[in-house]
């Protein structure tokens, strides 16, 4: 589905891989190795070279906003452009069941965004991205600030979406999580990406 061919940018050596529908890839590597650079390049947030396509459609032939609705990106520190939470969603009320499944209280909407906890904001950013019904989701440590229960809830929700065809590229530092959520493991170091063999990942 998502096909990446020789994608490169300063700080990232040419990268090629395919990500199939309903597939999940875990991406890890030391800090500053280029994980975020890769995700940003895939979301077309920075100038980059190479070919990227989705379901056979070249990215460069698609307006960038259309691309980003299909290939969603949730950064490690998501941004907010308004103090009112509901401003960030197309229809907050219809998301209530989903929010509950992520262990978010519906009262979360009554507080201004800066007063929410890091963990709450992280899950809300994930919801916000899911609301656009992307085909691919690029996640930068989506459970970084979460406790065990919330992490399990996020993993369960994403697993369900994955079963419905969502493809995931998931940055995580937790090896056990990587094994839980992904069928393939990528390793990136100093801007160089390689697919880890099963024994390397152990």
């Amino acid at each position: 589905m998502l096909s990446v061919h020789q994608l490169s940018r300063p700080g990232l050596e040419p990268v090629s891989f395919d990500l199939a529908a309903a597939e999940s890839i875990a991406l890890s590597g030391p800090s500053g190795a280029g994980k975020t650079l890769l995700l940003r390049a895939l979301a077309d947030l920075d100038p980059c070279q190479g070919d990227v396509s989705l379901d056979g459609r070249e990215r460069r032939n698609m307006p960038a906003p259309d691309w980003r609705q299909r290939v969603g990106y949730v950064p490690a520190e998501p941004g907010w452009w308004s103090d009112r939470l509901a401003d960030h969603f197309q229809d907050w009320d219809s998301l209530a069941p989903l929010a509950e499944s992520l262990q978010l209280k519906t009262a979360v909407n009554d507080r201004p965004v800066p007063q929410l906890s890091t963990g709450e904001r992280q899950r809300l950013a994930l919801l916000r991205a899911l609301e656009r019904q992307p085909k691919v989701l690029l996640l930068d440590e989506p459970t970084g600030p979460l406790d065990e229960d919330a992490t399990a809830a996020v993993e369960a929700l994403l697993k369900e979406k994955q079963n419905h065809g969502l493809a995931l590229l998931w940055v995580t530092h937790d090896r056990r999580q990587a094994e839980r959520i992904a069928s393939r493991q990528f390793w990136i170091d100093r801007g160089r990406l390689r697919e880890a063999l099963q024994e390397d990942a152990q």
């Binding site: 609705q69 998501p78 941004g79 960030h88 916000r128």
Partner: peptide
């Protein structure tokens, strides 16, 4: 200063005009 918020809008499929409106 508001880079994160602007890029968050772009990531959700906003055009540059819409994301820069605030």
């Amino acid at each position: 200063q508001q880079r994160a918020g602007i890029e968050a809008q772009l990531c959700l499929g906003a055009t540059r005009r819409a994301a820069m409106l605030p």
